[in-house]
């Protein structure tokens, strides 16, 4: 594979791009992760056996609770409620935050004026926003989701503002000369350039949002993982608390593996990977 084309690029380079996903290469990391998690479980089990207490159940006990809650359907009901809120807050925060961030990144004077607002909102504690939202708008679903979104929006704004500042004007000029339609500009010029920033905002966003959603549920909702944890806290049922927590972490892990990573791989397929 050393044939050269007219401009001196070897064909071997081209072939290398498509033939990198060997089966051992994809299997090894998965194996490492499994062994690592099993090790953590083993450590937990040993510790729980060494100090037996109702406040520190072992993995077996937590698993029993998990099966019980799953069988009764409670687990899926509450997981679903929380997941719905996470998704809604995420979408709202990403859209509003991106629009504001891109505008601030594109217009220097607007940025100078609104920057103090962004810093102010960045530093308001999540709890304050949640409590105020419930007081002003009542214990409603909209207040809950809105409060979570408002907590996340400043973070998205800051990230997307950086993204907008890094936009390359040459692509916009090319699009202007060739008269790209507005939608084409968005899809082929703007979004691909903002993709790394969108990915960063999404990653940190989902992790932050689901933690805040639990607080929102604890304070003013009658379902969801946060509500259940509050309930079992009053009963001092640590096994159930851990069961719900681990179940939701597992859900988020699955979303990361089956949704976030494939989307990211697709979006960055054009980047030249180091050989």
């Amino acid at each position: 594979m050393t044939t050269r084309d007219g401009d001196g690029r070897t064909l071997g380079d081209m072939a290398g791009i498509s033939s990198r996903s060997g089966s051992t290469a994809t299997l090894m990391p998965a194996l490492t992760v499994t062994i690592s998690l099993l090790g953590l479980g083993l450590l937990w089990s040993l510790a729980a056996n060494a100090w037996p207490s109702r406040a520190f159940p072992g993995p077996g006990e937590v698993w029993q609770v998990l099966l019980r809650e799953a069988a009764s359907g409670d687990l899926f009901y509450h997981l679903g409620a929380t997941l719905g809120r996470v998704a809604a807050a995420y979408v709202v925060a990403m859209i509003i935050g991106s629009v504001i961030g891109i505008l601030l990144g594109s217009y220097r004077r607007a940025d100078r004026f609104f920057n103090p607002w962004v810093i102010l909102f960045l530093n308001i504690p999540a709890l304050v926003i949640i409590v105020l939202a419930y007081i002003w708008f009542g214990l409603t679903e909209a207040a809950a989701i809105g409060a979570v979104a408002v907590n996340k929006i400043p973070n998205v704004v800051v990230t997307m503002r950086e993204g907008a500042r890094a936009l390359d004007p040459r692509y916009a000029e090319m699009a202007a000369v060739y008269r790209f339609a507005p939608l084409d500009r968005l899809r082929h010029i703007l979004l691909p350039q903002l993709q790394p920033y969108l990915a960063a905002a999404s990653r940190s966003g989902i992790a932050l949002i689901w933690k805040i959603v639990l607080v929102v549920e604890l304070l003013g909702r009658s379902n969801g993982v946060g509500f259940q944890i509050h309930l079992y806290f009053q009963l001092f049922d640590v096994a159930a608390i851990l069961a719900y927590t681990l179940a939701f972490v597992a859900v988020m892990l699955v979303i990361e593996l089956l949704l976030v990573q494939p989307v990211e791989r697709h979006a960055t397929r054009w980047r030249r990977r180091p050989a």
Binding site: R170, Y171, E173, M174, V177, Y178, R179, H188, I189, P192, Q195, W270, R271
Partner: peptide, 17 residues
Amino acid sequence: NRIAAVFQEPTLLPWRT
């Protein structure tokens, strides 16, 4: 009434074929 330009740099979109 279209105009076309070839810039000093190729200015191809790196994320499109």
